[in-house]
Amino acid sequence: AEDTGVRVELAEEDHGRKSSIALRLWVEDPKKLKGKPKDNGAIEFTFDLEKETPDDVAQEMVDSGFFHESDVKIVAKSIRDRVALIQWRRERIWPMIQ
């Protein structure tokens, strides 16, 4: 995944069973963002792998003032890349459960 300057990681162990999972997002390199992110720390949130889209969360983060509207795509892509990795890993490790 391309380095967007925004890092998204699992905020909990993933056992492949729950559809909703805790993620943690923070800005690793603010220079890569168009707008100036509010000087916040790591933002932890729950994401439903089956029902929600990264764009939903990114827009909510912009609405909540964490990021500038012009960065909504970068934030969505960062979340999308991590979610894709989680789903890829789930398919490989727990194919039966999926």
Binding site: R7, W26, E28, G41, I43, E44, F45, T46, D56, D63
Partner: peptide, 27 residues
């Protein structure tokens, strides 16, 4: 505590905590 919580109108909770120094790229 240094945790703050923001709840979006759609209901999602965002919990903000300090990023460990080790995880920030050199500025």
């Amino acid at each position: 505590s240094s945790f703050t919580q923001v709840v979006h109108s759609a209901g999602r909770r965002f919990i903000v905590s300090p990023v460990p120094e080790s995880r920030l790229k050199e500025q």
